[in-house]
Amino acid sequence: MRESDVHPTLRAGALALLVLIALVEVTPYLWMVSTSLKSLPEVIAFPPTLLPSEAMWSNYAEVWGSAPFGDYIANSVIIATSIMITQGILACLAGYAFARMEFPGRDAMFYAVIACLMIPPQVRFVSIFLLLDNFDLLDTYAAQILPHSVSALGIFLMRQAFLAVPQEIIDAAKVDGAGTLRIIFQIMLPMAAPTLTAFLLFSFVFHWNDYFWPLVVTLEETVRPLPLGVAMLREQGTGSRWHLIMAGNVILVAPLLVAFVLAQKRIVKAFVFASIK
């Protein structure tokens, strides 16, 4: 629709409505930060105060001391990064083979990969739990990384990207004596970089946020990631410790919010890209 086809009053009304919706989307985060800096009496005061009379930064120290937050964060970084790297490497290798090489059974195997796109973690978790238990792998990083170490979506996206590279470039590299791995990582990859970065970002955010899988395969605090640790805060005490729970929640949510503000365009593009391609 063209701007000029819409009545000006209607346009002003629409803009006001949009601003209201955006406020509804943002207010809970502001309320979270405000609560996290209040004292307990202020959290339950009526009428409530919009802002804390005095910012209680000690809430953050208190919640940090009440659970192994350092471990949680380190675990989240280790798990999400490992998954992202293995998914990325395997997607490049298999994506190249499916796009650019010929070998018997290639198409059948590619269809199998597509079929795996339709098998979500919620279908796999009962059996994989028993499998990990058999090998004494529950409560380890391996239990949280290995089952996600390959991504059908990643292979699919990289295959699409590699298919778009002109054959002459590969031929020229072969004439120069480049081996397969050099062709993939030094010649093809720079041309498929937008696809790869979009996929890696998508993968990292997804597994950084994951709660379901670590809940199923871990019981030990020391290997659990941040979302699980923060969710546990609520189960530790009674209802009114909301200033501490919200302080924990800020630790969980803030890094993503900051990253989003800094790189909104890129992140939105990555999510659109990983979805529609």
Binding site: E25, Y29, M32, N209, D210, I245, V253, L256, V268, F271
Partner: peptide, 23 residues
């Protein structure tokens, strides 16, 4: 406005759920 509305999609479910239990 787009950013404000999209942000919550990349925030974890745990973060959003805790936020709303309190709200």
């Amino acid at each position: 406005l787009q950013g404000a509305i999209f942000t919550s999609y990349i925030v974890s479910w745990v973060g959003v759920s805790l936020l709303w239990v309190w709200m």
